[in-house]
């Protein structure tokens, strides 16, 4: 189990694009957009400081979500690549059980969502000066990490269902759609009404809500928790169905 886990982690982390999109880019956005847009509110008054805090916190949460979604999807969709190369078929004729291969990829997706969340939190705290009680920080990081689960399941579903090229394209497009329409780049409150109702259908919006609730109240909203849990169950169930119809070790194409 640990052998395969270490092996897979190494492979993913060797991919500089993965590290760029899941950690470096969200961290850089956190600094840049908070300083550019939040900076306008940073006047001398108490009201200005409160506005800046609210903006900086919300944007930090959005980037935690953005980075973790990228990490979760990017790590798990690799199943499609490993199937295409014949590696899964090769592993199938070793004593490594297939269930473990999937289990390890789920673990890798969850593990790699954590650095995205942590690094953005650290940048938010120490570069942008976001002030939250210690307990709230712990809860925030915890729920944002756990909230990556539906996206791990979604990546797994895509990795199982799609062939190599389609899977590669799908995560690129999906990452952008989930972030943009889910209100992670620009707050959904600024959207026109139609787009706002679209945002409310996306798990990425509720992922952002999860973090905003945790940061504001110290506990995430029940609605966000329930919707994300439902999404995780739905995607996992679909992934299960797909894997039954199309075994991992089948030759692709």
């Amino acid at each position: 189990m640990t052998d395969l886990l270490v092996f897979q982690l190494r492979r993913v982390l060797r991919n500089w694009q993965f590290v760029l999109f899941s950690v470096l880019l969200p961290a850089a956005f956190t600094v840049f957009f908070t300083q550019v847009f939040g900076g306008q509110a940073a006047g001398g008054t108490a009201q200005d400081r409160a506005d800046f805090q609210r903006y900086a916190t919300d944007y930090m949460v959005s980037m935690m979500a953005y980075g973790a979604i990228g990490a979760a999807l990017g790590a798990t969709v690799r199943l499609a690549f490993d199937r295409h190369s014949g590696w899964l078929r090769q592993l199938r004729v070793t004593p490594v059980p297939t269930a473990r291969i999937v289990g390890v990829d789920i673990a890798v997706g969850m593990l790699l969502a954590l650095p995205s969340v942590l690094v953005v939190a650290l940048v938010g705290r120490f570069v942008n000066g976001v002030q939250l009680p210690l307990g709230t920080w712990v809860v925030l990081v915890g729920v944002m990490w756990a909230g990556a689960a539906p996206f791990v399941a979604l990546g797994l579903l895509l990795g199982l269902a799609l062939d190599e090229q389609a899977a590669g394209a799908a995560i690129g497009i999906l990452g952008v759609v989930l972030a943009a329409l889910g209100g992670l780049w620009f707050p959904a409150e600024l959207f026109p009404p139609v787009l706002r109702s679209v945002a409310h259908l996306l798990p990425s919006y509720w992922y952002g809500e999860l973090g905003r609730g945790a940061a504001a109240d110290g506990v995430p909203g029940a609605g966000a928790v329930l919707l994300l849990a439902a999404a995780a169950v739905l995607f996992a169930a679909l992934a299960g169905l797909v894997s039954r119809r199309r075994p991992l070790f089948a030759v692709s194409g």
Partner: peptide, 13 residues
Amino acid sequence: GVMLQHGGLPSQA
């Protein structure tokens, strides 16, 4: 022990 016709090796390893 097996050498498959359609076996493969993992990328980035």
